[in-house]
Every structure is written in structure tokens, then in C-alpha cells.
């Protein structure tokens, strides 16, 4: 299910593609320390998030799945706190796992 999580008013700064996702993709660079309204909660960004990159909407434990598009896109190689940058430094690919029928 594609959801329209962010407010439609004004310029959107990040996109949550599916309401099951635990990451959001930013549309423009967001700065470390910024507080972002995400649904019912406020998220303080722990690092700069460059345009097109992702931050965690909830805590992802080490070994937990990163969820985008409502699907698993990778596995956390370390615990990822809320508001942290989610990218190749803390995520591994799971291509063999998800390629099975």
C-alpha cells in the first residue's frame, strides 16, 4: 500500500513510501540536530542526511530488517537509533534471501 504519510501542504522534505516502512527518504538535505515531524512523533536527526538518503523512523536492532516500499531492502549490521543515517555503513544487502520464490 502506498501511503501519503507526509503532510501534503507545503514543500515536502522527506517521503515515507509505505506505512510499514522504518526508514524515510529525504527530498532535500536535512541537517544534524534538526527535529522532523514524522506522523505522531518528532524525530531528531543524529547526522546530516543528504538528498536521496534515508534516516531511521524507529530503532532498528542489529540484524533487523530495513523496510522501504513495505519490503525488506537490507539488514542492519549494527543497531540503528531513531534519526540516524541508514546507508552502506550500517546495512548489508539481502539479495540471496529475497530472490527466492
Amino acid at each position: 500500500m502506498v501511503s501519503e504519510v507526509t503532510e501534503l501542504a507545503g514543500k515536502r522534505r522527506y517521503v515515507v513510501v509505505d506505512d510499514r516502512d522504518n526508514v524515510a527518504t529525504v527530498v532535500e538535505m536535512l541537517k544534524e540536530g534538526e527535529v522532523i515531524e514524522a506522523g505522531m512523533k518528532n524525530i531528531k536527526l543524529l547526522r546530516d542526511i543528504p538528498e536521496g538518503h534515508k534516516f531511521a523512523l524507529s530503532r532498528i536492532p542489529k540484524g533487523g530488517y530495513i523496510i522501504k516500499f513495505g519490503e525488506w531492502i537490507g539488514r542492519a549490521t549494527a543497531e540503528i537509533p531513531v534519526g540516524d543515517h541508514v546507508h552502506i555503513h550500517n546495512v548489508e544487502d539481502i539479495v540471496d534471501e529475497v530472490r527466492k520464490l
Partner: peptide, 18 residues
């Protein structure tokens, strides 16, 4: 892709098949 924020091949493929 990585510089642009794509992290895994699965993520890239999922974006494509949409």
C-alpha cells in the same frame, strides 16, 4: 546510485519494479 542514497541492490530493484 550509492552517492544518491541507494543502499542495496534489492532497494534499487524494488524502486524499478514499481
Amino acid at each position: 546510485n550509492i552517492a544518491g542514497g541507494l543502499t542495496t541492490l534489492v532497494e534499487k530493484s524494488l524502486g524499478g519494479v514499481r
